[in-house]
Design a protein around this nucleic acid. Structure first.
Lengths: 196, 196
DNA sequence: TGGGTCATGTAACCTGTTACATGATTAG
DNA sequence: CTAATCATGTAACAGGTTACATGACCCA
């Protein structure tokens, strides 16, 4: 999977592992966290598959770097992947797994759990709003302005997702607070489990 | 990760691999897809770690089964995991990676891409609305009614997520349709990349 | 006799994470 | 002198996917 992300970046132009790493952090982190070590490993795989070539570039005042370029075969692979249909939109979410089993802990502790989560998400949201995504910088110097449309879509997804997540967390928290304040919802739910 | 999900289920009562598999499909599929083979493998790991024990149960009219039970040490591990803080709410989403690089394909093809996605998500949504999640069935015969609150939260997350996803897909599709109809947005975005 | 459900797995592979490892240059 | 940035990796392990493999019973 990461392979195709790297291939997609190389398709915009030659890049070093270091630059790819930065691109992931700056622009793709809304939906993909790439480990530096994995990036360097996948670059070797791309080369082995004939999807990319590398070239050492000597620099003055900086360490040498290794620039990777996509090959014709790599471009074909990228397109094969883009066209292949595969509409998975549900992924593994550890945070939901932990929520599912929270009946094992006390209501008070779980209120804390959601409060902490809410704080984390809010911090993320305000960071999003204060420092706009760096994809914009890339938009300037790349071949085709149409690319920016799709980049913007993923950023938009990030914003919508985070907002929805925050709404959900707050809703959960409120529900627990109601239960704590002696509301009868627990019993009702137990009596009529079909309601959800 | 799956380990803890299985541990959480065993904590409700003894279960076989087959039953755990069904539970994942019925109730945890909103945020976790577990492979049958992985479930059986992880059960062996739980046993090896002393977190669960197994017992062969002979049945008449059905094949023998192997019931797994959580141990005290397994319950400790479950609680250690539940308490450990870890607030990752962003995960890898292949569908977003594919969207990011869609500049490589034509606008028309990408309209198709979002149309297909939208159909898939709508089908999922209507399935959700027509056949309510089976977690309800489990709610009846399990020890503590409070558990159902947390199960309901994850189902609620699923509903909110799918709805948000659908909104996003439709928004993307509309944006592309506007571009197709000669709207100037592409140029504007290219001139003022800071706008997003 | 054919499809569905019950029931359990192995092997190989691919993908991702964590920990470790090194070293140059530049700006303050 | 020290922190930040530039730059590239390896090794071991953990977690997840795909393909394969088997067989009983029940109902129509």
């Amino acid at each position: 999977m990461l392979k195709h992300g790297i291939l997609g970046l190389l398709n915009y132009g030659s890049m070093t592992g270091y630059e790819i790493n930065k691109a992931f952090r700056d622009s793709l982190s809304y939906f993909w966290n790439a480990q530096t070590s994995q990036i360097y490993r996948e670059l070797q795989t791309l080369k082995k598959n004939g999807w990319a070539t590398d070239e050492v570039v000597e620099q003055t005042g900086k360490p040498d770097k290794k620039a990777f370029s996509i090959t014709e075969s790599g471009r074909e692979e990228l397109n094969r992947w883009l066209v292949e249909d595969n509409a998975e939109f549900v992924t593994r979410l550890p945070v939901l797994m932990k929520t599912f089993f929270r009946g094992e802990r006390s209501v008070d502790e779980n209120i804390d759990y959601f409060t902490k989560l809410s704080d984390t998400v809010m911090a993320f949201l305000s960071k999003l709003q204060n420092e706009p995504p760096k994809v914009a910088d890339y938009a300037k110097n790349l071949r085709d302005p149409i690319d920016a449309i799709y980049w913007k879509m993923t950023v938009e997804f990030g914003a919508m997702y985070v907002q929805m997540f925050l709404d959900w967390v707050n809703k959960c928290k409120e529900e627990l607070e109601e239960i704590k304040n002696g509301n009868q919802e627990i019993q009702n739910t137990a009596d009529n489990p079909d309601r959800f």
